[in-house]
Design a protein around this nucleic acid. Structure first.
Lengths: 150, 150
DNA sequence: AATAAGTTGAGAGCTATTCTCAATAAGGAA
DNA sequence: TTCCTTATTGAGAATAGCTCTCAACTTATT
């Protein structure tokens, strides 16, 4: 089922890049994440530290970006101010996000026809698809009732 | 057709806020933007300066955020490192973005069924819809051919 | 016209992210 | 295996987009 370290190595080497312990650990960490969880760079650093794996923030930032550009991770902006990452999974697990712009409460939802429409659009323009994100910005029921401004 | 200054004033006052010349100018500027154009905070500052309207960056940042949260503007992340804004238009003009993660070349496309699916999803969860963005991250044909890494 | 409260501008401050570079290690070649 | 080239890492400095602070000013209301 899962994308293996060997597959990661093959894909890296194909482009002249290398498999390092750090990259392997990062991939594994995201694969073991509970459904619906996503990590910021600092989150990942802390998770790794808890597991006794020290990886520098520089390396984490570099590899999150790299793996997103390879299509292995998805780069999400669920709340203001920091990017979060999660494994980029194919169709039955692929999902989108509904986000409250005030409190950042996020709901995941699936919609295969949107994914298909995205893939079709990319193909039509000759683009190689990496990730397809339907992001809905809205105000959640609680914040609609709140008296706080904005 | 367009959202008028009076409508902006009404909507602001309703929430206890005020219509200022700066807010009116910002709205007008986005309404006069060519189709497919979007501005970063600094872009907007420069455009306004060229028109002889000096508005501080603080004010610009504040109002871009405010108007996005009101649903008047859409906040886009088309390239790394900075947010861009455009008018949030309804159905016949509403569109999505296909972005090359390497060179940031962006193609706009329309898909009403995606917009409808987004609206339906928000409603189902009781969220008040502000904006619905299908963002496709991909590699454009030119960058696929390029020998540059990543 | 007076008043209360929201807004602006200038610059300081913040912080997520990127950059720099010496030390290290991966992968291919011999 | 060993060597060699070159990608990668780690630590900290640097960058930059954005937010915060606060006095001065405006807006909307009475």
């Amino acid at each position: 089922m899962a994308y293996t370290p060997a597959a990661l190595k093959a894909e890296l080497n194909e482009r002249g890049w290398r498999l390092t312990p750090q990259r392997e650990i990062i991939l594994e960490t995201f694969q073991n994440l509970a459904k619906g969880e996503h990590l910021s760079a600092e989150d990942l650093r802390d998770v790794l530290k808890d597991e006794g794996e020290q990886v520098s923030l520089s390396t984490i930032y570099r590899n999150l970006k790299l793996m997103a550009r390879m299509g292995i991770l998805r780069e999400l902006e669920l709340a203001e101010g920091q990017k979060r990452y999660e494994i980029n999974q194919p169709s039955p697990h692929h999902h989108h996000h509904l986000i409250c712009v005030r409190c950042s409460k996020t709901i995941e939802f699936k919609n295969d026809s949107v994914l298909k429409a995205g893939a079709r659009t990319a193909k039509k323009s000759g683009y190689h698809l990496l990730d397809c994100q339907l992001t809905i910005h809205a105000v959640c029921p609680t914040c609609q009732r709140s008296l706080l401004p904005v």
